[in-house]
Simulated assay, not measured.
Amino acid sequence: MLFDLAPPPTGKRGRPRLKGARLGTPAELAETATFTTTPVARYGRTDHVHIADVRCLWYGSLHTQTVRIILIRD
């Protein structure tokens, strides 16, 4: 399960939030991500692929460590 980054502290009493809104699974994230076309060199030729880069939290596995999800479409 992927989550948005933690919001900034509110300045109120209590512990600040550790994670933001739920983003869902990588498949659900791919449906709403913004893709850009980028040339990629692979297998001795240059192809154009669609790439999306999302910074988020993989809270279940890495707790509050920020991860970078790279989504690629041909």
Rank of each mutant, 00 (worst) to 15 (best):
R68G: 11
T37H: 11
A33I: 07
F35T: 13
L18M: 14
G24D: 01
A30N: 05
K19I: 08
G14Y: 02
T64D: 12
Y59P: 00
T36N: 14
H48Y: 08
F35A: 11
R68E: 11
G60M: 06
F35N: 13
R45E: 05
P9Y: 05
A30K: 05
L29N: 02
V67C: 10
G14I: 04
T10N: 06
Y59M: 00
L29P: 05
V49I: 07
D47E: 03
T34Y: 09
P8G: 00
G44F: 01
T36H: 12
D47N: 00
D4V: 04
T10L: 09
D74W: 14
L23T: 01
Q65R: 15
I70G: 09
R68D: 13
T38Q: 15
A30F: 04
G20H: 03
T37R: 14
A21P: 01
V40R: 14
L57H: 10
A6W: 06
G24Q: 01
A41K: 14
G14M: 03
S61R: 15
F35H: 10
L71M: 10
W58M: 13
K12I: 06
T10S: 15
A21I: 11
G44V: 02
C56H: 07
I69R: 03
Y59F: 10
G24K: 01
Y43N: 15
I72L: 12
F35M: 11
F3V: 08
L57Y: 06
T32S: 09
